[in-house]
C-alpha cells in the first residue's frame, strides 16, 4: 500500500458515497447513466470473482464487498424506486460494443488463460470504457448537477491515481502489470475533457456546462 493507492481507493469510496447522497438528497437519479452504472456492476462482479478464493487483507475484502454491494444497490434502486426520475431516452449509448470490445480485448490481451484471470482482465478493459455512456449522456444534455460532477471527478481521479500508483510500484517494488496500466491510461484520457471543465468551472463555483 502506498499513498497514491490509498487516496485512489478513498476517492473511489467517496465517489460512490457522493452518488448515493445525490440520489437520496434529490430523490432522483436524473443525470446518471443507468448503462454506466450497469457496466460498473458487471466490472466489480467479474473482477472480484476471487473474493472467496484469494485472501489479501480485511481492507481488500471489505472494499470488494462494498463495491459489489453498492453498485448492485444503485442498479437495483434505479430500476425500482427511482425508475421514473431518469430518462432512458437520454441514455442511448450502445453498450453492446463496450461489452463485446472488452471481451475481444481480454481474449487477445491477458496474462493467463484461466477462468478467473480472463474475467479479471475483462473487468479491467470494461472499466476503462464504462464511463462512456455517462459522458455521452452529458455531452447530449450539455450539463450536469454539481454533485454529479463531484461524483464523476472522484471516480475519474481514482483510476488516474492508480496510474501513478503503478508507476510508483514499478519504481519501488519492480511490480508491473501492463494491462491495468494501459486500461487506466485509456480511462484517464477519456476523462480529459471532463477534468478540464471540472477544474475550469466547477472548482470555481460554477455549474458544469459544456461549451
Amino acid at each position: 500500500m502506498n499513498v497514491f493507492r490509498l487516496v485512489a481507493d478513498l476517492m473511489h469510496l467517496a465517489s460512490i458515497l457522493i452518488l448515493l447522497l445525490k440520489i437520496r438528497k434529490t430523490r432522483s437519479a436524473a443525470g446518471i447513466s443507468f448503462k454506466s452504472q450497469l457496466l460498473y456492476l458487471i466490472v466489480f462482479v467479474t473482477r472480484y470473482l476471487d473474493l472467496f478464493t484469494h485472501w489479501v487483507s480485511l481492507y481488500n475484502t471489505a472494499m470488494k464487498v462494498f463495491f459489489i454491494a453498492s453498485s448492485g444497490y444503485i442498479v437495483y434502486q434505479m430500476q425500482r424506486r427511482y425508475r421514473a426520475t431518469w430518462d432512458p431516452a437520454l441514455d442511448t449509448f450502445r453498450i453492446e460494443f463496450l461489452l463485446g470490445g472488452a471481451a475481444v480485448m481480454s481474449l487477445i490481451f491477458h496474462t493467463k488463460f484461466t477462468f478467473l484471470e480472463l474475467f479479471w482482465t475483462y473487468s479491467i478493459w470494461l472499466e476503462a470504457v464504462a464511463i462512456l455512456p455517462q459522458l455521452f449522456q452529458m455531452s447530449r444534455t450539455g450539463e450536469a448537477e454539481t454533485i454529479t460532477a463531484h461524483y464523476l471527478f472522484a471516480l475519474g481521479a481514482y483510476r488516474g491515481l492508480y496510474v501513478v500508483n503503478w508507476i510508483y510500484r514499478y519504481a519501488t517494488e519492480g511490480y508491473w502489470e501492463w494491462i491495468p496500466f494501459l486500461a487506466g491510461m485509456v480511462q484517464t484520457v477519456l476523462y480529459a475533457d471532463f477534468f478540464y471543465v471540472y477544474f475550469s468551472r466547477v472548482m470555481r463555483g460554477k455549474k458544469f456546462e459544456l461549451p
Binding site: D9, V56, N60, M63, K112, E173, Y175
Partner: peptide, 10 residues
C-alpha cells in the same frame, strides 16, 4: 516483471 500471483489491488 512480477508474475501475477493474484491481484492485490482494487
Amino acid at each position: 516483471a512480477a508474475e501475477p500471483v493474484g491481484h492485490d489491488e482494487l
